[in-house]
Design a binder for these strands. Structure first.
Lengths: 235, 235
DNA sequence: GTCCGTTCTTGCGCTATCGCAAACTGCCGG
DNA sequence: CCGGCAGTTTGCGATAGCGCAAGAACGGAC
């Protein structure tokens, strides 16, 4: 296992307020693992033995109902932590993590966490911020699901993905990892059919360009307008 | 301001792992305030100057969209904390807190938090657990909104309320604070009309008994069945 | 006891979205 | 180069739930 260069991760929010010389000590407790595309990193319900920091690639966190339906909790971008079950006192992972692209991940054993936060309280504070931010995002999502139509929700979802993991193109922004209509449906609480119809519509208006697990926002600004439009104003 | 009896709050999750003698010191930093029914405790967007522990009564946390629609984020029961904006690094309250019943609240100034968690790390850990639990509940709610029909969601919402704040009766469980059809609609992502129809239906089947801002679950067990029923099985 | 405001109920038409079914397409593996 | 599969598109009916509107019931204020 290759040693991780501290300078590559020092700027991450997780390590804000941690002295560079301490960072080395923290990283020594972690190992770096590569997950190929479509491989599972952990399964919902499994005992939480580790927590993770994504270095490269993209990870999808999804929750499954007893009856088999799935929702996408979030997509993890490089630099973000995931699988924080132990930090919030959960013994088991509440969701499944899947590498949607070839990914490299730093892994700490759950057991290291108490020691780490004791030595480096900033880690605990930073994690608290992260969890708090996710809580707020969750609430925003609930608000959207309660008050907006499907088309607006899809628009918001794409804009967030573009913002988080968009690759800037000459003309437009491309979502930088494979994502299907089904995935977007599971992010917005709808069906892949409806998502497909919406994207088809947008495509014929030139707002997006898309294909198999691939989406490019050609007119991000117009999509913002869509996302914010009050459904019963205008056309 | 009356002094708060430590024995009344010592068992709360917030203070788990705090020594009784330390508790006194923590409580000295708080003041106790009474809010009459229907009064606002803080407003969404206001600067977060305090954090709160509910001693008596019930508080509704709700989020409002730019266009005025509201959703209920949660109901706070006695013994729970709320208004934790500062703990998660937010400068402003992300929701509005309203006393739905005459309520008594312990209030700490935001500025006391850093000092408190430094002296009593258990507070930080407990708060982390709380926030984590809320995050998971949020995800569960998103899952329900994505996969279940309105009737099931309403059933789940009522069961949770009954569980959290239910008063046991000879026959059934009463939700122990004033709650309108509209409130339930805002918890489940539907309209008050639909909630009203659903409750009417249940009432005629003897599952519930309800009136103005008042709901009694007469057959909690049957409501559990409703909540879990797969929509396309059975009648 | 009466008035008034709020909450609740209910009928009815509407439509956004689902669900199914069938066909299409780009792509990987051999 | 040729399947075959996963992902996508699209048509078409079905419907859950919405939105409006009117009225009824409850409970507090005076």
């Amino acid at each position: 296992m290759a040693k991780v260069d501290t300078s590559l991760v020092a700027h991450l929010p997780l390590f804000a307020g941690v002295k560079p010389e301490d960072l080395d000590e923290i990283l020594r407790e972690a190992r770096s693992v590569r997950y190929p595309r479509s491989s599972a990193i952990f399964e919902q319900g499994a005992e939480a033995q580790s927590f993770f920091l994504l270095l490269h690639g993209h990870v999808r966190a999804a929750k499954t109902t007893p009856t088999g339906e799935q929702i996408v909790v979030r997509y993890v971008a490089p630099g973000e932590t995931f699988g924080l079950a132990m930090a919030i006192g959960a013994a088991h992972y509440p969701a499944t993590a899947l590498a949607v692209d070839d990914s490299v991940v730093l892994i700490w054993p759950t057991g290291a966490w108490p020691r780490l936060i004791e030595r480096f309280p900033a880690l605990a504070a930073n994690t608290m911020q992260t969890v708090g931010k996710r809580l707020q995002e969750s609430h925003t999502r609930i608000l959207e699901m309660s008050t907006q139509q499907v088309e607006q929700r899809v628009a918001h979802a794409l804009l967030r993905l573009a913002n988080q993991s968009g690759k800037k193109l000459d003309h437009g922004i491309e979502i930088d990892f494979p994502i299907s209509r089904q995935d977007i449906a599971q992010m917005t609480g709808t069906t892949l059919h409806t998502v497909s119809r919406i994207l088809s519509g947008w495509e014929s208006q030139g707002l997006v360009e898309s294909g198999r697990q691939r989406i490019i926002l050609r007119e991000p600004h117009k999509i913002v307008v869509l996302a914010e439009r009050n459904p019963d104003s205008g056309a």
